[in-house]
């Protein structure tokens, strides 16, 4: 360790850094302090809460898998294949990152709603998406996919293309290079992208409540349950938030090896 070998860090950097940590941690600590620990287990064991937790977990996982299936090929195309309009595509797929989630929800309604561009023909076939868990997964995928694509594209770009060339010289076709070289080498980045996307799904609120609605057991995910409870019973909302916080910490622990581990190297 080269601990302070270059001299003491200056106060004008230490102070804002400390404030940044305080800004991020004080609210979280207050949330924990405010938690109704006496009734915590009882509250969390309530069927509505368990429903919301289960729904959140499986829809986020489904969205993660959808991101993998759809997003990995897209990230690969963006990172490895030159085609006209590539930078435009890259910009467009990241738009949902800056879109207010509620607007994302409205956009999803105009596409997959009962009278939407895709939704109306689907309705003819007897399929309606809003107010279903499918809608939750679509909303989650919509917001998580850009995270995944950006993160994986970055990972692919960081992985040397030299190996792709070596594989080509050795006779591997493009698909085989993707499967046997590119993906294994970018695997840590892909895993990080999956975790990021999953975490994003788990915290998703605006698009879900707008597009999928809010009904316990069907479309009421943890954040929706927290928001609903917030209207009347803050302690219950805090209890649920604690669960979300716990899940975030676990996710970060999973990412630790990759992010903090690499930074320390």
């Amino acid at each position: 360790m080269s601990r302070n070998r270059l001299g003491r860090p200056p106060a004008y950097l230490l102070l804002p850094a400390g404030l940044a940590v305080a800004l991020l941690l004080v609210p979280l600590a207050s949330l924990v302090a405010r938690a109704p620990f006496g009734s915590l287990l009882e509250r969390l064991a309530a069927p509505e809460v368990l429903d919301a937790l289960w729904l959140s977990l499986w829809t986020a996982t489904a969205a993660m898998l959808a991101s993998l299936v759809l997003g990995l090929p897209l990230a690969w195309l963006l990172a490895r294949v030159e085609f006209p309009g590539r930078s435009l595509v890259r910009t467009l797929v990241t738009v949902p990152l800056v879109l207010p989630p509620v607007v994302a929800g409205v956009a999803l309604l105009t596409a997959f709603g009962r009278t939407g561009v895709v939704g109306a023909p689907l309705r003819e076939l007897g399929v309606t998406i809003p107010f279903t868990s499918t809608a939750v997964v679509i909303a989650h995928t919509f917001v998580a996919l850009p995270f995944f694509v950006i993160s994986v594209e970055g990972a692919l770009r960081a992985t040397s293309q030299d190996y792709d060339e070596v594989a080509a010289v050795l006779g591997a076709r493009r698909g085989a290079i993707f499967r046997r070289v590119t993906v294994p080498l970018a695997a840590p980045g892909i895993a990080a992208g999956l975790v990021l996307g999953w975490a994003r799904s788990l915290g998703e609120f605006g698009a879900t409540i707008t597009f999928a609605g809010n009904y316990p057991g069907v479309t009421q995910t943890m954040p929706l349950a927290v928001y609903t409870l917030l209207q009347e019973d803050l302690e219950a909302a805090v209890a649920l938030s604690l669960v979300m916080l716990l899940v975030s910490v676990v996710v970060l622990a999973l990412l630790r090896e990759r992010w903090f581990g690499q930074a320390a190297r």
Partner: peptide, 22 residues
């Protein structure tokens, strides 16, 4: 019969109807 969705405020209920989702 239960509602398909329990919106957090009345404007959200109205929006769902206005958009013909409900």
């Amino acid at each position: 019969a239960r509602p398909r969705s329990l919106e957090v405020d009345v404007k959200a209920v109205l929006t769902k109807v206005e958009l013909d989702e409900a």
